[in-house]
């Protein structure tokens, strides 16, 4: 899943304006392979803006983002492949089944056999819904299918915006464990969440935006 030994993300003194609001004020974030960063902060402090900037959707007015030492603007496609982004929207098509959604999403990056897709759905507890159109799934189940896409992405850097939304208590614990496993294997995860992440002390680094 994550084989980049030098995986290393630096957001170097980012300044971001959204209209009249100065959202990120010289923010410096550094994430090394194996780090699980929990982004915290009240509503409107720029957690989503930070993730969207790191994902390359927003361009900071000042500062730069470096991936493995290189500014991401130099190799956008290479950076995009090393990164998986889960936004507020699940990016699922309601008329396609969970498996079809995964098929079209993951094969755009690399060939993924259907057995692997089923296995990941099984791990996330939605194997029984694999062949149902996702519009009939519950909100939590949709979130799990969306998370399956991240797991199948083979990306090193995971940017997850409120991944625990709509998940049940067990789902939150399981997902936190999955992300922790990813970081243990050398991945990097930046996760925004209002809830505390139930993991042992020292596994998660908290970063509070104000």
């Amino acid at each position: 899943m994550a084989d980049a030994v030098d995986a290393h993300l630096v957001a170097d003194h980012l300044h971001l304006w959204r209209g009249q609001r100065h959202v990120l004020r010289g923010l410096y974030v550094e994430a090394r392979a194996g780090e699980f960063i929990h982004l915290k902060g009240a509503n409107g402090t720029g957690k989503t803006s930070l993730l969207r900037t790191l994902a390359g959707f927003l361009w900071p007015e000042e500062g730069e983002i470096r991936w493995c030492g290189q500014p991401v603007g130099q190799d956008r496609d290479g950076y995009a492949v090393a990164m998986a982004y889960l936004g507020h929207e699940n990016a699922l098509k309601g008329d396609l089944t969970a498996l079809e959604n995964l098929h079209y999403a993951t094969n755009l990056r690399h060939a993924t056999p259907q057995s692997a897709q089923r296995a990941v759905l099984e791990r996330l507890g939605v194997a029984a819904q694999a062949d149902l159109p996702t519009r009939v799934l519950s909100a939590g189940q949709k979130r799990r299918v969306a998370m399956a896409r991240v797991l199948l992405s083979r990306a090193t850097l995971w940017l997850l915006d409120e991944p625990f939304t709509n998940l049940d208590t067990q789902g939150v614990t399981d997902l936190a464990a999955l992300v922790a496993e990813h970081t243990r294997q050398g991945g990097i995860a930046l996760v925004t969440s209002h809830a505390a992440i139930a993991l042992a002390e020292g596994q998660v680094r908290e970063l509070v935006l104000a």
Partner: peptide, 9 residues
């Protein structure tokens, strides 16, 4: 539904 975002990534 966010699929266009994913398409750019």
């Amino acid at each position: 539904d966010g699929t266009l975002e994913q398409l750019t990534l």
